[in-house]
């Protein structure tokens, strides 16, 4: 039986991890294996961890405003390392105008504040192995 594995990471210097932890817990309760890597990860570390853990999806959380630099870099490095099949989702404080550019940069979906856990679960279940 194939289990969905998701890496949940906080890129950059932002220390607000409550949202990432709530998501990690919600995905766990939905039967997924969640690898939580903690704060202050570089995009390089996140991609390397995604490779070693052979995950189906990477979830990035940012509340510091650096998402336009960090999220696309993760998506690009994943492609460069041959992990283009990995679903990349993001969450946090992301202005609506940025969402379009992030999609173009390879972030599959952005979830903002107020998102229900079941929406995130359903999205991942419906889109892994894209």
């Amino acid at each position: 039986m194939e289990k969905i594995r998701v890496l949940v990471a906080k890129p950059g210097l932002d220390g607000h991890d409550r949202g990432a932890k709530v998501i990690a817990r919600g995905l766990r309760d939905a039967g997924m294996e969640v690898i939580y890597t903690g704060l202050h990860q570089t995009p390089e570390d996140i991609v390397e961890a995604a490779i070693q853990e052979d995950v189906d999806a990477v979830g990035l959380s940012s509340l510091s405003g650096a998402h336009m630099t960090l999220f696309p870099r993760v998506a690009r490095l994943l492609r460069e390392r041959g992990m283009e099949n990995v679903l990349v989702i993001g969450g946090g404080i992301i202005p609506p105008d940025d969402i379009v550019s992030l999609k173009e940069a390879g972030i599959d979906r952005i979830f903002g504040p107020g998102t229900f856990l079941k929406e995130v679960v359903a999205y991942i279940e419906g889109h892994v192995g894209k």
């Binding site: 289990k3 990690a24 817990r25 995905l27 766990r28 309760d29 939905a30 039967g31 997924m32 294996e33 969640v34 690898i35 939580y36 890597t37 903690g38 202050h40 990860q41 570390d45 961890a49």
Partner: peptide, 12 residues
Amino acid sequence: GGALLGDRVRMG
């Protein structure tokens, strides 16, 4: 059947 695998936090 889910799991939270958190050991990498200490091994960053």
